[in-house]
Amino acid sequence: MAKRSGIFDMIGPVMIGPSSSHTAGVVRIGRVAKRIFGKHLAIESVQITFYNSFARTYEGHGSDRAILAGLLDFKTDDARIKNALDLATQESISYTFKAVGNASIYHPNTVKVEVQGNGRSVEVIGESLGGGVINIASLDDFKADFSASNHTLIIKATDERGVIAFISNILAQENCNIATMSVSRKGKNDLACHVIEMDSGIPQITMDYIRHINWCKELIYIPDIDF
């Protein structure tokens, strides 16, 4: 059964208008892309593609400002969202927007964010599901499917036997419950991506430990995207 609404779904959320799916949801997707890229890394350039239903209305709904606001790590109720185009330019971020009308394999409200800077590049595809709720469909061409409303752990690792068991065992030792988990890989023995949504966070030392294991190529931790 779907999660029951609460009082603050009726009287809330506090948000920047005009639309929860075209503004608040898009800010969240931008923020996830920023966190995956690196919270403290400077973004140099970003290409943003709005698909399907987003393609025609992204300007009118301010989704262009919303996605840049997310990439500037603003929250959904930040009054600066309105000025995000100028603020991104001030931060020396160069940006381009593109609209694609008929990407039928994508959700109606889909946005693709390609971020570059410091020699690093990240590609995130996000879906705005309504009411500000999002799904990150993929990252760097790996299937992801997470909402970013829990604690999310993303681990890129070599495709080896026992990695999933190892990770879940460590999380169990941290008394951390796994809500959802998805694993996809480029190919056999190639790179695999583990996306784990957890009910609680894990300490820095545990993340550092996983990072030092030789199969771990990258570890990203994103706490609840609204905090």
Partner: peptide, 15 residues
């Protein structure tokens, strides 16, 4: 204020 990208409470929705 909502239509002009200001801060509001969706109650129950932004519209």
């Amino acid at each position: 204020v909502n239509s002009c990208m200001g801060r509001v409470v969706a109650a129950p929705t932004a519209g």
